[in-house]
Amino acid sequence: MHPSSEYRPGLPEQNDNVSHNHPLKEFAVLLSGVTAFLLLAAWSLGLLVDWAASFISPEMEAVIFSSMRFSGAALFVQQKDDPRRAELQRLVDELGRCNEVGYPLQVNMAQSKDANAFAFPGGRIIVLEGLLDTMRSENGLSFVLAHEMAHFKHRDHLRGMGRGLVFTALSALLTGAGSDITQLVAPALGVGQARYSQEREALADKLALETLHCFYGHVGGATEFFEAMQEESGKQGRGIGGYFASHPEAVQRIDALRSLAAASGFTVRETFRLSTVLVPDTSSQ
């Protein structure tokens, strides 16, 4: 024992075990740092994906995605014996004369009330039934098909797939899959990706317009689909949500197409009515 030692009670004035930096400041610095890093990484990896996509030849693509299930197109119900499918296939084949994609395209129909069409790897175009209900003219339908064909020509389907893969891997690697941080940086990545996607859509619109002019000799019906979309969604804009959308707003696309047509000297003439095969059977509904 140390009877001689004396107890001197005291408490440290200053707490050395905690830092006295403001947490909000630290948060701002770290968040901007990680966002900048991710945007930079996403941008450079995106370029890498684009570069890699250009190496995948159509033949290789056809082999890789020969299975429906693998390409994602199997999500949609297909009806092989549908006469409308054959008609759409004929239209795509004929449009192909004006826009050589480089490999055979296969059209499939899918049951859905939505008016839309998709381009899937392996040269598959999925047309939703709702699209045929919406379109009035063959020219308008041709534009939508030509737009999807343009995606194949630009290899956007591969780019989109590659980017999705790379971004998911990147955020999972950094923060662990499904963690809260991923949620935080996802909007930044989302805006970046949406901008890229909107750019690709605009490019596809441009090529589709040219295809339409080459095929019919005029660009009547080019804006028909977007006009229908605009009517459906109403006049109000999308607000801040527009920054996250993968497609430009319908109004913008109509304006862009009109100014593009004017600049190229494309004229608008009478459009053809939709082939009777494609017109929905109103009596059964």
């Binding site: 905690v18 830092s19 947490p23 630290e26 948060f27 770290l30 950094l174």
Partner: peptide, 21 residues
């Protein structure tokens, strides 16, 4: 908030100040 802050700090390394207190 501190959990998120710690997660961010984990990416860059260094003192995880939000857990110190």
């Amino acid at each position: 908030f501190k959990r998120i802050l710690a997660g961010l700090r984990n990416i860059f390394g260094g003192n995880v100040q939000s857990y110190e207190t």
